[in-house]
Nucleic acid binder design. Structure first.
Lengths: 335, 335
DNA sequence: TGCCATCGTCGATGCGCTTCGACTCGCACA
DNA sequence: TGTGCGAGTCGAAGCGCATCGACGATGGCA
């Protein structure tokens, strides 16, 4: 392995000088700098991560805790992860993947063995059991999602409450008087997953505010579940004209089932989906959506983390405003 | 931070003794062991990863290179990743995420800064430009996928050639005489992505062997692309009765479109899908599938990596036999 | 001409751990 | 009684780097 000493010898300077060239923490004459940089390139030198971590107490690694559940949407999770790695690399950090399944102990382990400099946590629940422990850790922590009591932790997420309201507002503006929310699977609600409950609240409040009849149902993502869910909804209110779908995985089945029932979108029933924009055009009818800005959230999470690492200590909660894009799946109800 | 010295002091032994208790590399009296273990627990000691890496030249970190493309199936990628982290943790390793976008240089960097002990690489292309560099690296490398010339690298994957053949055999056995393959998006073929070309080869050879008329089309995953693809296929051969779909993302659109055309599955047309088993039941018709054993492949990749790390130096190529599960989407063609 | 500040560089130290050689027992065996 | 040996423990060295204090050279100013 090529070490800083090899570089120093090749360049005819002291190892510490090489170190300063790399870090830029002291001024270096242009001549020396050139000499050293050339040696680095020629030898293909990369500082030993362990040694660097030991000497500087910094690893340049960010840990990301992801859920492995299959009952929430994998594609969205993947988008977050992708955005996070990309953003992390842009800040010269690497990304360590942890799973929610390992529980709070894993967070302890990572923190106290100095594997990573900071923690980013996805799939946050309203009363997340990891929160107290995360606070106790003295690492920078950024939550993707918002628990009931973030108490000192930074959070970033789509403003799901506003998103729920936006969906209702759109349908109400079009003239719909009876709408329904098809949500994530029951297990997601049972866990108190933060985005699900926040969306539901926004939906309910807005519906009440607008005087729109509104019901909601969780829905697992098998075809049968979707079908059963629609059965119930239509039986409960045959005058239903608008659907808000906060569950990307059921969209294909849902649209297919609606057509099967002879319900045309949007003529007979309007559909607003909450999903990444990339999914909007994959269906026979281009969907009106409120976008889940996974990419932006991921990038912001990294950015907030870097700020914390840079000494910016006050925690912040960033809620990204929802963006509704009207496409072909919503229209005024037939009178 | 609590160090090995703190533990040693608390237990009244030398630091090296603590180290030996942890590593088990020398015998320790039961009494001492108990004493030390108790101190470790009481103090919440975790060895400093950097220091450990520096002293032992082992990081206990595995790097996984994932593709970030959206033109291949994210859900499957996610399954791999999930399986890999889980398996890695079971071997007491952490998982570092790298992206294919960073190119070969990133692999160099990770290798020569000793960030990880080994590399696992997904989305391998037939003539993957990373292969020569990976060989030059003296880290254990395991490819998920098989390039044309693996030359000394370990590989693991589903045997896609056999999978292609299995799909044909199933349809041929049922009596189909004209079938078509709907493959991944054109870009995937253009890159020479290993699994796509291998599957196609198996499909073609088997069709020829069985005397079945067979054509194939790549297909992007927008609804229009699916529709256009079906138009072409049906125009080219109105007697088409069997479809092999090696592109999970188009399944919903495809099924929906078939119904739209008045083609019932399986009465009018049979469909065999290549996808993770979990997706088989999410459609109005439960799909006959050849499973993509993402979980097993991921686990095997980790296992092979650990073997290499354990000193087992001979590279191996493991191809997992395809498993076809018959469900409701295939039947004998109407005569 | 002499003094001080600044710039650029060097050497030494220590981060927390693993590992190697050495040392001390206690025991079996001759 | 002496010798050999293995089990159990210790101390020291060193892994590759960042960082701090120190030092020589240079230039500005009086």
């Amino acid at each position: 392995m090529v070490t800083i000493n090899d570089v120093a010898n090749a360049a005819g300077v002291a190892p510490s000088t090489v170190s300063y060239v790399i870090s830029g923490k002291r001024s270096i004459s242009p001549k020396t700098r050139r000499l050293v940089e050339e040696s680095i390139r020629k030898l293909g030198y990369h500082p030993h991560a362990g040694a660097r971590a030991l000497a500087s107490s910094k690893t340049n690694v960010l840990a990301l805790v992801v859920p492995l559940r299959t009952d929430l949407n994998v594609a969205v999770v993947m988008e977050f992860v992708a955005a996070a790695v990309t953003a992390a690399r842009a800040h010269d950090q690497d990304l360590l993947l942890l799973t929610k399944d390992e529980g709070p102990a894993a967070l302890q382990r990572v923190a106290s063995s100095a594997i990573a400099d900071a923690l980013m946590v996805m799939d946050v629940e309203a009363a997340d059991p990891r929160v107290p422990m995360l606070i106790a850790l003295d690492l920078p922590v950024v939550l993707i999602g918002v628990p009931d009591h973030p108490a000192g932790l930074s959070c970033v997420d789509l403003d799901f409450t506003a998103a729920g309201a936006a969906c209702v507002a759109h349908l109400a503006d079009l003239g719909h008087r009876s709408i329904a929310l098809i949500g994530p699977s029951p297990a997601v609600y049972r866990r108190g997953t933060s985005y699900a409950t926040r969306f539901l609240r926004g939906f309910d409040e807005a519906a009440q505010g607008r005087g729109v009849r509104a019901v909601s149902r969780p829905c697992a993502h098998s075809y049968e579940a979707v079908s059963a869910c629609l059965d119930e909804l239509l039986a409960a209110d045959p005058g239903l004209t608008g659907l808000v779908v906060h569950n990307e995985a059921v969209l294909p089945g849902l649209l297919s089932d609606l057509r099967h029932r002879g319900l045309r979108v949007p003529q007979d029933i309007s559909v607003v989906a909450v999903c990444p924009d990339t999914m909007a055009e994959q269906h026979p009818v281009a969907l009106t959506t409120v976008a889940i800005p996974a990419e932006e959230v991921g990038a912001q999470a990294v950015e907030m983390t870097m700020r914390r690492l840079g000494g910016h200590t006050t925690p912040e909660v960033r809620l990204l405003g929802p963006r509704l894009t009207r496409r072909d799946s919503t229209a005024a109800p037939r009178t």
